[in-house]
Design a protein around this nucleic acid. Structure first.
Length: 274
DNA sequence: CCGACAACCTGTGAGC
DNA sequence: TGCTCACAGGTTGTCG
């Protein structure tokens, strides 16, 4: 259920424990993830050393130290989480995979819905088809209102699913799309092509603001998300609209409403968002 | 190319 | 306590 802030929180939490470490054992308890765990993954990983942990969109990238470039590509799907466990800590239900490190720490993957996956990625990361067509990082200079304006011309799609399109900008999922549209005062049902430059500038700024704030709070824990150190995120109490359907708007006091857009539930304030 | 929709899978909370 | 239904943080593929 991780969106960008939760993946980034995970990266920051586990990085100090995995970087520079050698993998001494790999335990696969359940290989049936969204992409089945490759049969040769264990052999490839045992004895490998991990480089600096990176993130692209909602993917975590674990570079494998060595002459030929290779990485572990890890996606947490809807319900996945990675955390550091101590040697001897018993796995719980849905703890599908362990990387045992040379200092005794364990990188443990938990994922009830199994929408996430781990895959071996040989060669240049940016050439992988899963990453090649991704839009810019929302917190980079390449993301701005002008891009949203340009890509949306002629589109009748509602602005919320437009904003969640990974070719437009990465990392903005259902929670933060709803929150950014609230901050920008834009109705999530509005056709993307019928929003002007000025409002898109505000929307881009709102996306950056909400993502940065969520990262600072360690992400949003709705149910079971925990960062790499096992701590929940504290952004939930700052949510203005997500999950608050029927509750009063924090800005105008009016009743928040829920609609479905692009098969995702979308809460907004009919008075503040036009 | 665009947009709508189904699918992948398990858990939880609401309502009866 | 138990059943059934709707719904949940993401992504990919198909179809018109």
């Amino acid at each position: 259920m991780p969106e960008l802030p939760e993946v980034e929180t995970t990266r920051r939490g586990i990085a100090p424990h995995v970087e520079g470490r050698e993998i001494v054992e790999v335990i696969v308890r359940e290989p049936r993830l969204r992409v089945p765990v490759p049969g040769d993954l264990v052999d490839r990983l045992v004895g490998a050393r991990l480089g600096p942990l990176a993130r692209r969109a909602k993917y975590l990238l674990f570079p494998i130290a060595g002459a030929t470039p290779a990485s572990l590509l890890w996606h947490l799907g809807m319900s996945g989480s990675l955390r550091i466990a101590r040697l001897g800590e018993l796995p719980k239900k849905h703890d599908h995979l362990d990387l045992v490190l040379d200092d005794g720490a364990i990188l443990r993957y938990h994922d009830p819905r199994r929408f996430g996956f781990v895959d071996w990625l040989a060669g240049d990361v940016e050439l992988d088809p899963r990453l090649a067509r991704l839009g810019p990082e929302p917190l980079s200079e390449a993301f701005h209102g002008e891009r949203l304006h340009r890509l949306s011309r002629g589109r009748r799609l509602a602005v919320k699913p437009f904003l969640m399109d990974s070719g437009v900008v990465v990392g903005v999922g259902n929670i933060y799309a709803a929150e950014a549209l609230f901050l920008a005062g834009i109705d999530p049902r509005r056709a993307a092509g019928r929003i002007g430059r000025e409002r898109y500038a505000r929307l881009a700024a709102a996306v950056q603001e909400v993502l940065a704030a969520a990262i600072a709070q360690g992400g949003t824990t709705l149910r079971d998300f925990v960062g790499g150190t096992g701590e929940p995120g504290y952004f939930r109490q700052r949510l203005n609209v997500y999950g608050r359907d029927g509750a009063p708007c924090r800005r105008c006091g009016g009743e928040l409403r829920r609609v479905t857009l692009g098969q995702r539930s979308s809460v907004f304030c009919p008075r503040c968002q036009t």
